[in-house]
Design a protein around this nucleic acid. Structure first.
Lengths: 349, 349
DNA sequence: TTAAATATTTGGAACGTTCCAATTCTGTCA
DNA sequence: TGACAGAATTGGAACGTTCCAAATATTTAA
């Protein structure tokens, strides 16, 4: 059934050289004579030789497998799909191959997946950690000399490199924009308070309202699941407030979409009746109606950058933990009401 | 720098047993005494042992690596991301791990990626082939006893299993729906004619118009790239036709979105002024305005199903090439004008 | 108590590669 | 011609595991 494998010894025999020579050819060594090299190559093609990386890797103990592990927490979210594509680009062109897994926010699955990757001898790991991931979880990896780069969500205690977008500045610019449009009561909606990303975005919100001279009011921040459903829930509470807000910055785009849904359910039109701003600039943001004003973060860029960082560490042999935050930029579309006449906003304020 | 690896021999020494016994424990053999087993397990934990699958698989020649390769042609398209998630679900729960790569429609990259996967000893491959993939490309794989399942796009000549959605029936029901709404001139827009999927969908279109007694007219099928830009281009040509169509079925949702863009650019409102129907039901379809009427295909289901099929073949040891087509269903939303009054349509017809 | 049966453990020999040190070729120079 | 340098090649040994056949421990049956 399964054909006997063609090995380097078979090639050697058929080409009339030693297995060592074949091995040299395999690694593109300059030691081997041009004629021999091509002869060996021909024979390999004829016999349908397939390199056995497992065996190779076994011998070059400690040397690298050329596999990069990538772990994301939600591949169906186009944000992470883009990220993976970004990683794939640089990883492939560096001659590595990508091992991608999805945890679906399950910390157990994350553990399984990472363990499995380790068994397969990955030379590095890029991970967007599931919620509530323990900083210590990646300790063994780095102790074994396997570089780890954490992306999107940072892991405060862990001694690993990370690359996150500038959540604070992004949220601050969103608030600032709304303030410039004349809004006085701006809410912060959605997200789970136990995450580092939430903290950063909230801090940005706080800085924003304070800088605008509006003052930070606790009742205006309403947490919820970072999903569409969470957004519906959050806006419901916000509308119920005695001193009702006229605008909101949302934890992410999914929440923002939910907020729009919730507004419509109450016969309020997002954009004209209530300003909403998202975060992430997922692919659907510009096609939505009204088009979502949001903070754009370029996930593919993060992926590329993270991969570069990882490769650098792999090549360097030593993992200098380094943290970079990537710039973000507010994309003004319709949902913030920027295109509306001033009159409407004044009626409302 | 890199610590010396902890091997099964180290464990054996520390636990006072032989390496063979440790190996037995590793494989959960029932031959080993309960006491010994737990002692070994404890030691493994203490020393931080990591199983070396490379070595294992080297020995069990022909035996399987528990890696499943997944190759898709466009991960940024949420259709394929969903598909990958579907595969991941069943693959992971079967104790396999997924190796995912993106070809971006490049046939060269596909070749590279598949070769690399083979070197790593995948036990099976799920692939959505890049355009113009040669059926013979997967020949060596199956010859080596590695099961291959082709999804989404089928590969006519290849002797591999495949699972595609029922493109023909889907397109036919779309045409039928438009005919029932009173449309007489229905165009088929977008897609590259050199693909099997195109042929299937076009055949469905043809059956549909003929069954509705409208007659098949060649000038109403206008090919283009299967993208948003392609859609714009195709609708441009369609509008220019002497006997202008009043409705269109599109090769896929991306084309359909492009068609909507093109209509608007000509001051025609999709839905009320011109009916458009897509194919795939990508995630954006329901959030778009107007919400896209489209043929829903459940990519995640295809992924799951494909993975199951592959696992079955892996376990059976023999690859019985099997072809399944999955059912699709028309989702009526707004872009087909189904919600419009009959009057408007009559004005138009 | 002993033989037979069963349960457990164990030392090599693989698996396909790379590395090392050593060997065999080429010329080249005196 | 012989010696020498450089180029090219080569036979083990090793990597960490599993498998096999064989050895040893423990029970059971008589």
């Amino acid at each position: 059934m399964t054909k006997p494998r063609v090995t380097v010894i078979d090639i050697a025999k058929a080409a009339g050289v030693s297995k060592s020579t074949v091995s040299l050819v395999l690694q593109g060594s300059s030691l081997v004579n041009e004629g021999t090299r091509s002869k060996v190559n021909v024979v390999m093609r004829e016999l349908g030789y397939v390199y056995n990386r497992g065996a190779a890797n076994l011998r070059q103990a400690g040397a690298k497998s050329r596999i990069i592990g990538v772990v994301v927490n939600d591949l169906t979210n186009s944000f992470f799909a883009e990220l993976a594509v970004g990683v794939d680009m640089v990883v492939q062109s560096a001659g590595f191959v990508q091992f991608l897994s999805n945890t679906g926010e399950s910390i157990d699955r994350q553990r399984e997946v990472v363990a499995s990757m380790r068994e397969h001898g990955i030379s590095g790991l890029i991970v967007s950690p599931a919620r509530a991931t323990d900083a210590a979880d990646f300790k063994p990896l780095v102790a074994a000399g396997i570089p780890v780069v954490v992306v999107v969500r940072n892991l405060p205690g862990a001694k690993v490199s990370s690359i996150v977008s500038d959540n604070q500045a992004g949220m601050m610019s969103a608030v600032q924009h709304l303030a410039e449009l004349g809004h006085k009561r701006i809410a912060f909606l959605g997200g789970f308070p136990d995450t580092a990303v939430f903290d950063d975005r909230l801090a940005g919100y706080r800085n924003g309202v304070e800088a605008a001279g509006l003052g930070y009011r606790e009742e205006l921040v309403i947490a919820s699941a970072p999903s569409r459903a969470g957004g519906v829930e959050a806006i419901g509470k916000a509308i119920g407030l005695a001193d009702r807000p006229t605008a909101a910055v949302c934890f992410n785009d999914a929440v923002a979409f939910g907020v729009c849904d919730g507004l419509r359910a109450r016969r309020l039109e997002p954009g004209s009746d209530f300003a909403v701003v998202g975060f992430d600039d997922v692919i659907e943001a510009q096609a939505a109606v009204p088009a979502l004003t949001t903070v754009s973060v370029d996930p593919q860029g993060i992926g590329r950058r993270g991969a570069q960082m990882l490769l650098k560490q792999i090549n360097a042999g030593k993992a200098e933990a380094e943290t970079v935050t990537t710039a973000v930029r507010l994309v003004v579309r319709e949902s913030c009401g920027a295109g509306m006449s001033v009159k409407i906003k004044q009626d409302f304020a």
